[in-house]
Write a protein that binds this DNA or RNA. Sequence first.
DNA 1: GTCGTCATGTAAGATGTTACATGATTTA
DNA 2: TAAATCATGTAACATCTTACATGACGAC
Lengths: 190, 190
Amino acid sequence: MSLRIAALGLLAKQPGSGYDLLKLFEKSLANVWPATQSQLYGELNKLAESGLIEVSAVGPRGRKEYRITDTGREELQRWVLHPEDDPPQRSSALLRVFLLGEVPPQQARRHMIALAEHSDAEVERLQALNDSLDWDDDASSFFARAALEYGLRVNAMQADWARWVIAELDRRRPAESSGSDMPELAREKT
Amino acid sequence: MSLRIAALGLLAKQPGSGYDLLKLFEKSLANVWPATQSQLYGELNKLAESGLIEVSAVGPRGRKEYRITDTGREELQRWVLHPEDDPPQRSSALLRVFLLGEVPPQQARRHMIALAEHSDAEVERLQALNDSLDWDDDASSFFARAALEYGLRVNAMQADWARWVIAELDRRRPAESSGSDMPELAREKT
DNA sequence: GTCGTCATGTAAGATGTTACATGATTTA
DNA sequence: TAAATCATGTAACATCTTACATGACGAC
């Protein structure tokens, strides 16, 4: 259901072809709702069939430019304001942690360190992305920026949390660190 | 792929039937990896076919008790330690925020308030859950507790973030937003 | 003996992924 | 004219949801 909406949402900002949207998915929506080429073209046809979008122009190479319809805009608003019928959230990262008791403690610990470092890297990546984009002053840009801020905060939190888990782990079995792997856990995020 | 692993992980802790696992999914895994009855029974058969689990006993009513095999344990550990081949994350909540520029500002603001309140409620729910459970001292319980802590932190962060967004929103268009929560339909289309 | 729980399954359809296929137009 | 890019599509397969179907056992 949501890819449908993501496409509709991009077309709400401006008309474009499947190919155009694909670029937007890679560029601006990659971190929020990744989509593949196959799926996108399929959805666009379905959206057109349901009358939520329409072909506004045909160009070279069979290019079909789509534009959102009034019905489409209504549907978009309806969806955005109704979070209650979202599908349940799944997190494989969390599942992994949940199952970490099934692997040897040393490896579990190492996994948490890797997780913390990965989150640090994500924070940096998003920070760079944030700095590189020059935001317009409209509502659309504001909320895109807000979504990015969310990403920054999630990852910062994740890094903190991972380090908290490691600290708890060490508190419970302090002796067992057999010399070989003792990468220091120096920083509790600034 | 991950439901497969979730089931395998539960069987790693103790043997059980599909019906048993279903209960565990509802009780302990609901917030991490929800699953339906249909899917679970199907997965168990597939897991057995691949030799990752085996039927350890047959009881009344055709009850099949499954047990993890050595191969299964290996596969579980392999998966847990390899986050790199996870499917990409999608968040409909984030998509919603991303598209919030497409709805009237008043409603967008109200949506963010609802989001903040929802996160507050989640924090309370998880806190209660956390208090109600008496944790064992083994590794498994430790990591289940860590996963719950993650949930607490995500929701706390989400509430903070939502309120930050609202504050930014108000900073940018200070006149329109304060005070009454009345719908103001007359003004929407200006 | 019937009611609730235990227990497993099938079928249809939406959603998503990977890989393959095809051809037009621009640009170097 | 060769290569890159533009542009759309199909097929096969895995995953997940909803709904339907069936029957055995235990308690009362």
